[in-house]
């Protein structure tokens, strides 16, 4: 069983969760002023690292809250889960 620790509910089975792509992507403050290239970068382009990756997940069948996950894409190991709005952990925190 693959267990994920929800920051609110604790350890639950992974089938209760779903992943929604990369985390910590900030919408430009002034959309009207950014170039098409920058807007395209914000809208479409995502990192696809081999190693540490930050993702947004939801606990769909539990508390239905969104939270962030720091995951190693090589080993699939979830290193840390933390609440939305919490400081992004550094790679040195691993």
């Amino acid at each position: 069983m693959f267990v994920i620790k929800c920051p609110y509910c604790g350890e639950r089975d992974q089938t209760e969760f779903s992943c929604h792509g990369e985390a910590h992507i900030a919408r430009p403050d002034n959309p009207a002023e950014v170039s098409d290239e920058e807007w395209g970068e914000y809208l479409f382009f995502r990192n696809n690292p081999k190693g540490i990756h930050f993702e947004r997940w939801t606990h769909d069948h539990g508390c239905r809250r969104w939270f962030n996950v720091m995951r190693d894409t090589v080993s699939d190991k979830i290193i840390r889960t933390y609440r939305m709005g919490d400081q992004k952990p550094g790679v040195q925190d691993v």
């Binding site: 069983m1 350890e11 089938t15 209760e16 069948h61 508390c63 239905r64």
Partner: peptide
Amino acid sequence: CPLNFEKNLLKKNSCAQSY
């Protein structure tokens, strides 16, 4: 139901959401 019944819903007045 994927809940761990050794950790969740152990006693009176507890609840859990799952499927």
